[in-house]
Deep mutational scan, measured.
Amino acid sequence: KKSYVLIKVKNPKTKETHTIVVPEENLEEVLKALASQPNVKVVDIERFP
């Protein structure tokens, strides 16, 4: 059974918020990819039960 993680990201320029759902096993690479985006800020990470 896969567990999923909900990542909320915000664009500081446009103030838009997006929610991305990723499998927990991919969380680290997704966070690394997001960290390299200049106008993306991770605001929240939630685990799915």
Rank of each mutant, 00 (worst) to 15 (best):
K1D: 08
K1E: 10
S3D: 04
Y4G: 01
Y4C: 05
Y4P: 02
Y4F: 09
Y4N: 02
V5R: 02
V5C: 05
V5E: 00
L6K: 07
L6A: 06
L6G: 04
I7K: 00
K8M: 09
K8A: 03
V9D: 00
V9R: 00
V9T: 05
V9Q: 01
K10Q: 13
K10E: 12
K10P: 00
N11V: 05
N11G: 04
N11A: 02
N11D: 07
P12Y: 15
P12A: 14
P12K: 15
P12H: 15
P12N: 15
K13S: 09
T14I: 02
T14M: 03
K15L: 12
K15G: 15
K15Q: 13
K15D: 10
K15S: 11
E16D: 07
E16T: 09
H18I: 12
H18E: 05
H18S: 08
I20T: 01
I20N: 00
V21L: 13
V22T: 04
V22N: 00
P23G: 06
P23T: 08
P23S: 10
E24Y: 10
E24D: 05
E25F: 04
E25Y: 05
N26L: 13
N26S: 09
N26V: 09
L27I: 05
L27T: 02
L27P: 00
L27A: 04
L27S: 02
L27C: 03
L27V: 05
E28F: 12
E29C: 11
E29W: 14
V30I: 08
V30G: 01
V30N: 01
V30M: 10
K32C: 08
K32F: 10
A33N: 07
A33D: 05
A33F: 15
A33L: 14
L34T: 01
L34V: 03
L34F: 07
A35S: 09
A35P: 01
A35K: 12
A35N: 06
S36P: 02
Q37H: 11
P38W: 03
N39A: 05
N39R: 05
N39H: 10
N39F: 09
V40T: 09
V40N: 04
K41V: 15
K41H: 12
V42C: 04
V43L: 10
V43K: 03
I45L: 04
I45C: 08
I45Y: 05
E46Q: 14
E46Y: 15
E46L: 15
R47W: 13
R47C: 09
F48W: 13
F48S: 05
P49W: 07
P49C: 12
P49M: 09
P49F: 09
